[in-house]
Nucleic acid binder design. Structure first.
Lengths: 215, 215
DNA sequence: GAGCGCACGTGACAAATGTCAACCGGCCCA
DNA sequence: TGGGCCGGTTGACATTTGTCACGTGCGCTC
């Protein structure tokens, strides 16, 4: 993959070394080009998947990792979690197309310092990279508001787990088998989950939970 | 990038006028910047939603409209359809994150001349814009292969319609009311659709149909 | 025009699903 | 220590859903 690292000509101080990870080449390339216009930023590595992002991070030790939420292999939050452990000096931030409230919560729990939708401008993104690099946090106000209004998941661990198993439309019997539970028990959890989400049935419940990012 | 002489040709000639429509500012802006590097392309308008794209197209009369598939208001195919009617001189192409086979079919039926995933490079995109502007068609080979292997939808119009109504997990009674049909009839169509898609039940059927782009 | 295939539409019946009341065990607090 | 509360677990029962057999009408072929 491309390696734009240029030796020491950084004029004034050291530039902020950035890792870009996004599976859509078009966007990643375009982003790299735009960030290159900023004098104090330097894109040192690019990756198209989660594992590749990790490898690149280890090889190039960036100051800030800009990760797409949805990538093949590992998603952005998973990468951030491993980065936190393996390369604590590297700040992480997530960029996402359509952010769900639950993702934000998960990301913050993983130690991510920035969370922005792809609707921001490149200018703004550059500023946010600086903010994050300075040790501060930045969360898109709209996403934050959504997350707050959506609140915490009312589901118990078991309910969420069974809802997950129900997500692909499998019949109760199959879910029961996969969870090693009696069918009645499964029905009960799903019923309870649906009630908490004020959904008509488990399928609608799955939809609601997904929307809120609780799944 | 390079100073590659581009189709040198219309020295002083007219550039290809391009409309960019994508709801993600980051990507749209970045794309505009990259396409600006091409000597023979000129981004004359940008839009962040379906309706805005139409308005922009009417105002600026571009040669090629590059449309994101998923946008607020109207999706890319809907915009392409209206463009075809209102501005026949304008070629349309769709750019999409994760393309489903059915979308491609729908797009081609709407007169779209290019269909590419966002994993292509900007360089490649520029070439494709030229291809489309020259009156030719371009479809990403991988997406085309998927579409062919997925084949046509086996669903009848009625089945697809009811499956659509069932998509949000509504109970049969509600679907029946919305479709002005007897509940038994609704069950029958959905059952038939599920059988054709070899799905366990209507919810799984919705998932399968969505995946294949038949919904 | 008769026969055939296909999509539409319906109701009866069986199977799957959702609702309810109940039991058990751990935890907190008086 | 005992009681109340919460989450996990289960089976009985009513409702919803899926399956089946049936009838209708349209367009095609022979």
């Amino acid at each position: 993959m491309s390696d734009h690292e240029r030796g020491g000509t950084d004029g004034g101080g050291r530039r902020v070394r950035v890792l870009l990870a996004d599976d859509e080449h078009l966007i990643r390339g375009a982003l790299a080009a735009l960030l290159a216009l900023e004098n104090d930023l330097l894109v040192v590595a690019e990756a198209a998947s989660g594992p590749e992002a990790l490898a690149m991070a280890r090889a190039h030790r960036p100051d800030v990792a800009v990760l797409d939420l949805q990538m093949p292999g590992k998603d952005g939050v998973a990468v951030a979690t491993e980065l936190r452990a393996g390369l604590p000096a590297c700040a992480t931030m997530i960029v996402t197309g359509h952010g769900r409230p639950g993702h934000l919560k998960r990301a913050l729990a993983a130690g991510v310092r920035g969370f922005v939708p792809k609707t921001v401008s490149a200018q703004r993104l550059a500023e946010i990279i600086r903010t994050v690099h300075a040790g501060n946090r930045y969360v898109d106000p709209e996403l934050a508001a959504d997350a707050i209004s959506a609140g915490d998941s009312p589901l118990t661990a078991r309910e969420a787990e069974l809802l997950e198993l129900a997500a692909d439309g499998a019949p109760i019997a199959e879910i029961a088998a996969r969870a090693a539970l009696a069918p009645g028990t499964v029905r009960n959890y799903l019923s309870s989950a649906a009630a908490k989400l004020s959904a008509e049935n488990r399928h609608a419940a799955v939809r609601v939970a997904r929307e809120r990012g609780w799944l």
